[in-house]
């Protein structure tokens, strides 16, 4: 058993244990409780629902790793969606040509990047607590979005937009493919790039990173800009899935993204964390809600259970680190 644990840690990393155990537990419990759980239908629904929460979680991930947080992700996604919608509307709405697609995406990505960059500059140059800066940014973006839309929906997009939201390539939903590409990008960014290295160093000690010659301000600005760009991608996917933009879409995902990241072993103080365990944690959360759905419960019960799962995992970590076997290992 001990040898197994050691091998597992060696090949997947120590932070993979919690999410994997949760994954197996969820599969076992629902597999036994609902006989139609282990079916293509379940995995189909997970595959379609995962990307929205997943992309927003990726947007949350980088700031969390620097020891910060980005509370404005959902409204940044909405606002980016609005920018794309505006491009399509000005190019003829439903009849907009395919060429407008590129401009719409660029407008969305640009908006996301701009909100992120503004947040990053505020955090890097004033040293205000990221919770506060992004919280007030959230309030501002929500207000801006509601002001622009007068609280209503924007809809009427060309039909190819629906393909992004609902189409499949080789049997895999397009949103899932986009999400997988983003996961891979973030994985490479964190493990192999200078920026990834720098942001983890900043997460555990910004001053020490600065003294070692890392450009900490640039890193912070880039981190929040990338977070904003990821929000924009999420915003486009949401627009395509609902075939409309509404300020407040996905608002309830905000704290779930933090929960998913912590569930995936991200250090709450920053500096340590990987993408893969977070990816597994996201699958667990989505399976949990799909499974409950199958059994006739609604999303709200799933939300509650997500919270319970989080508490159980964190409590198990505490107990494990306090127990005798693990303590000797640490020392």
């Amino acid at each position: 058993m001990k040898a197994f644990v050691r091998n597992f840690r060696a090949s997947f990393g120590p932070d993979m244990g919690g999410p994997m155990v949760a994954l197996v537990a969820v599969l076992l419990i629902f597999g036994l409780a609902a006989d139609n759980f282990l079916s293509m239908a379940t995995f189909g629904s997970v595959a379609f629902q995962l990307p929205e929460l997943g992309l927003l979680t990726l947007a949350m991930l980088l700031p969390l790793l620097t020891g910060g947080i980005n509370l404005s992700i959902t409204f940044a996604a909405n606002l980016s969606g609005l920018a794309a919608a505006w491009v399509w509307q000005t190019h003829g709405g439903v009849d907009a040509p395919t060429s407008a697609f590129l401009f719409a995406c660029l407008a969305a990505l640009g908006t996301g990047a701009a909100t992120g960059a503004l947040t990053g500059v505020a955090i890097a140059y004033t040293r205000a607590h990221p919770i506060l800066v992004t919280l007030s940014m959230m309030i501002f973006l929500r207000g801006l979005g509601e002001f622009l839309t007068r609280g209503g929906d924007i809809s009427g997009f060309p039909s190819y937009v629906g393909l992004i939201g609902h189409g499949s390539i080789f049997g895999l939903p397009v949103p899932l493919l986009i999400f997988l590409v983003c996961v891979a990008t973030w994985h490479v960014l964190l493990t192999r790039s200078k920026l990834g290295f720098g942001l983890l160093m900043i997460g555990s000690n910004l001053e020490a990173a600065h003294y070692s010659g890392l450009n900490t301000r640039k890193i912070v600005v880039l981190v929040y800009t990338l977070s904003g760009i990821m929000c924009a991608i999420a915003g486009i996917i949401m627009l395509a899935r609902f075939n409309s933009v509404r300020v407040g879409h996905g608002e309830s995902y905000l704290l779930i993204t933090v929960l998913a990241a912590f569930l995936g072993g991200i250090n709450p103080f920053g500096g340590f964390g990987r993408v893969l365990p977070v990816f597994v944690a996201l699958i667990v959360l989505q399976l949990l809600s799909s499974g409950l759905n199958l059994m006739g419960a609604n999303q709200h019960l799933a939300t509650a259970l997500w919270g319970v799962l989080m508490i159980v995992v964190m409590a198990a970590r505490t107990l494990a680190s306090n127990s005798h076997i693990f303590r000797r290992k640490k020392a």
């Binding site: 290295f197 983890l200 160093m201 555990s204 000690n205 001053e207 020490a208 990173a209 003294y211 070692s212 010659g213 890392l214 500096g271 340590f272």
Partner: peptide, 18 residues
């Protein structure tokens, strides 16, 4: 402790930081 080295991070990462 707080400026010279990034204490929680690994020996390897500290060594290549600059």
């Amino acid at each position: 402790l707080s400026l010279g080295l990034n204490q929680p991070q690994s020996i390897a990462d500290n060594l290549v930081m600059a």
